[in-house]
Amino acid sequence: MSALAADAIEVYRTATRNNRMGMWLFFFSELFLFGGLLITRFALWVDEDGHIIRPELDQNVGLIVTVVLLASSYFMNRSEVAIANGRKRDFLVSLWITGFLGVVFLLGVVIFEWGLIHLPFVEHHIGPTDGVFGAVIFGMTGMHAIHVITGVAFIVVVWRNGKRDVYTEERHWGVEACAIYWHYVDLVWIFFYPAIYLIGHAVH
C-alpha cells in the first residue's frame, strides 16, 4: 500500500470518528427537544385532581403505525449490515422497504391520526385547535413527523447514491448516519406512542 493511500485511510478514519461523535451529540441535543414535548404532555394532560389523562383515540391507528415504524427499523438494520458485507442488492432492497414503510407511517399519521385528508370511512378527529389535547397531539406527532420526513429524504439520497456505487464495504458513513438517524426517530416514537395513546385514563 502506498503512503498516500494509507494516509487517505487515516483521514477517512478520523473523519468518521468525528462524524460519529457529532451525530451522537446531535441526538443528545434532540433529546431535550423531545423531552420538552414529553414534559409538556405530562404537565398539560392532567385533570383537576392531578390524575394523568389522555384523549379517546383510535387505538388501531396507533398500534398499526407503531408496528410499521418498528418494522422499518428492522429493514434499516438489514440494509446497513448488507452494505457492510458488500451485498449491494440486499442493501438497496432493504433500504427501499425502509423508506416505503416510513411513507406508510407518515400517511397513517396524516390521514388516520390527523384526519387532514377527509375520507368517508374515517371518523371525526381531534383538530389542532381542540384545547390541550389537540395542541399536544399535533405538537408531538408533528415534530416527530418532521423528523420522519427528513429521514425519508435522507433514505432517498442514500438510495440514489447507493445505486451509483458511492458506498463500499469499508466506506459507508452515509449509510451508517442514515441508519442511526432512522433508529433514533424510531426510538423517539417508542416513547411518544405510550405517552399519547396508552398512559392515563381516557376522557372524552
Binding site: 451529540l25 443528545f28 441535543s29 434532540e30 433529546l31 431535550f32 427537544l33 420538552g36 414535548l37 409538556t40 398539560l44 389542532p128 385547535t129 384545547g131 390541550v132 389537540g134 395542541a135 399536544v136 399535533f138 405538537g139 415534530m143
Partner: peptide, 25 residues
C-alpha cells in the same frame, strides 16, 4: 448550548404555533 437551547426552541415553537395555528398550549 447543545442541550438547553432546544428548550427555548420548544417554548418558542409552541408560542408560534399557538398564534399561527390556534394550538392552545
Amino acid at each position: 448550548q447543545l442541550t438547553a437551547t432546544q428548550a427555548i426552541g420548544t417554548a418558542f415553537l409552541m408560542g408560534l404555533s399557538e398564534r399561527a395555528l390556534g394550538m392552545g398550549f
